[in-house]
Design a protein around this nucleic acid. Structure first.
Length: 463
RNA sequence: GGUCCCAUCGUCUAUCGGUUAGGACAGUUGGUUUUCAUCCAACAAAGAGGGGUUCGAUUCCCCUUGGGACCGCCA
């Protein structure tokens, strides 16, 4: 049997971080088992599905390095097949037409609510021998769920799950406008696509029980199911669009790099011994459903930042610079061509104080901007002594024919001695004038990363 | 409310009956770096409660408590 996984988002909003993890797990398992991973866009909700979201989902997954096999599968293109299956189910007696009006259904729901009992469709039309069909109402097709017995699913993550069939209502498979619902479409497509492993969020558990009945009615092979626990917000609730760090885009725009996010998501709800950092290949080799826990996990920004920092510090300078360039052009502003080579050379120390690409961007402002702003508080720190030191520094600096750490160091040292101060006494005013802040990269790095003319210009401004 | 599920440091987790309950992030303290950050070291921090089973339970079972998911002609 072939090993096929899929990720099936609906394009009704930006890609959710939980969805990203689901996609990752599917992809990982497929790769590990030398199987295929497909992407299926579930766009049967015509009202809410948007093409822009579809595009965004695809590009987001590509950003993370999750490439699907073959073309993406567009569910709406397969609607006629879904309808055929509905008709077949009807013919075989596994489904029936329900002529209840929306009003009637709503009244039932109200009534149940008042009585405090759970609403389940009353199966009125399941056996409609004695009912007259109302002319004015277009029917929906409902699946004839089993009334007695239990349905068991051997879930690859949750273990054996058992539910009484009586709790599963006769769910709608074809709407009154003759379009298929999710339960039908997803099942038919999973079958058509020969999906062997359905890995999805815990919130789908009940759907699997419904869908299993469709598989059985159609005499189709039932796939393996794995329901992974949901990701919770820091408040401990299911992540919703209202949470501010819920979409993938939220992470990209603060400068999280893709390998770091992939690594974070991998370790959220899954573990392999004490290992924390996984290369892409390691994650493929080591991933398995046994390592997935059963309880939901909370998002932890600290951890995301920390892993991101680890990756920023460990990846190749060229690669980091490319990430940085891409990030900046998308979320900040295009880097001036003339600044590129300086930035490339400097990224090695700019990254030292950075947890995100955005931090690198902030650290690089003194290079990117020709004019720097100094706060009035910082300006106050430049006192009379500081000015003398700066004046002396300028004299020595101008004399230097070769600029390097080795030539600069004696200059700074001599100034410390001459003015009876410490490194901070010399370094701080210089840094404030050159960078515009008390904080910043190491002093030598700053001086060497700026043109001589620029250094002199910035220093002389205060005198 | 009904159905189903979950439960180890603040967070992510290890442990598959016998451990001083381990690691990582965050936190605290100290040290390197003649600033900040980095880096290094140390400290602090957990088996929700109650019953069983067992020579022995964090681990297996039950109850309580707490938390969650689902309950659409959305997906």
């Amino acid at each position: 049997m072939s090993f096929n996984c899929r990720f099936a988002p609906s394009p009704t909003g930006p890609l959710h971080i939980g969805g990203v993890r689901t996609a990752l797990f599917n992809w990982l398992l497929a790769k590990k088992n030398k199987g295929k991973y497909f992407l299926r866009i579930e766009d049967t909700d015509k009202e809410r599905s948007k093409d822009e979201f579809k595009k965004q989902i695809i590009s987001s997954l590509a950003w993370l390095g999750i490439e699907h096999d073959g073309e993406e599968y567009i569910q709406s293109k397969n609607i006629s097949k879904h309808i055929n299956v509905a008709q077949e189910l009807l013919k075989k007696g596994f489904a029936y037409k329900c002529y209840c009006s929306e009003k009637e259904i709503n009244e039932q729901k109200e009534k149940c609510k008042k009585q405090g009992i759970p609403y389940v469709y009353n199966r009125k039309w399941r056996d409609a021998k004695d009912l007259t069909i109302p002319e004015s109402i277009k029917p929906v097709i409902r699946f004839k769920s089993k009334i007695s017995g239990n349905t068991i699913i051997k879930d690859l993550v949750q273990g054996e799950r058992n539910i009484s069939n009586s709790t599963i209502e006769d769910f709608v498979i074809l709407r009154k406008d003759e379009t298929p619902t999710y339960q039908l479409s997803a099942t038919v497509d999973d079958h058509e696509m020969k999906i062997s492993h359905v890995i999805r969020g815990d919130d789908h558990m009940i759907n699997s029980f419904k869908q299993k009945q469709i598989y059985e009615a159609m005499k189709w092979e039932v796939p393996n199911f794995a329901h992974i626990p949901l990701i919770h917000s820091e408040q401990g609730k299911k992540l919703s669009k209202r949470d501010n760090a819920s979409t993938l885009e939220d992470y990209i725009k603060i400068g999280i790099i893709s390998d770091a996010l992939r690594n974070y998501l991998l370790r959220l709800g899954w573990s392999y011994k004490d290992k924390e950092i996984f290369t892409k290949q390691e994650s493929i080799d080591l991933f398995d459903l046994n390592g997935v826990g059963k309880s939901p996990s909370k998002l932890d920004m600290n951890r995301i930042y920390s892993i991101n920092e680890t990756y920023i510090k460990s990846i190749d300078q060229k690669e980091l610079f490319n990430f940085f360039k891409e990030y900046v052009s998308k979320y900040k502003k295009t880097i001036d061509q003339s600044k590129e080579s300086v930035l490339f050379k400097s990224i090695g120390f700019l990254k030292n104080k950075a947890k995100t690409l955005e931090d690198i961007w902030n650290n690089a402002q003194y290079i990117i901007n020709d004019k720097i702003e100094i706060s009035s508080d910082d300006k106050k720190l430049i006192d009379g002594l500081s000015k003398k030191i700066i004046k002396d520094f300028i004299d020595e600096y101008e004399k230097l024919s070769l600029l390097s750490r080795e030539t600069l160091e004696p200059v700074i040292k001599s100034l410390i001695d001459k003015h009876q101060t410490n490194f901070k006494g010399v370094g701080q005013p210089l840094r404030i004038l050159l960078v515009g802040s008390k904080f910043g990269p190491g002093l030598y790095d700053i001086i060497l990363s700026l043109d001589k003319t620029k250094v002199l210009k910035r220093l002389k401004e205060i005198l």
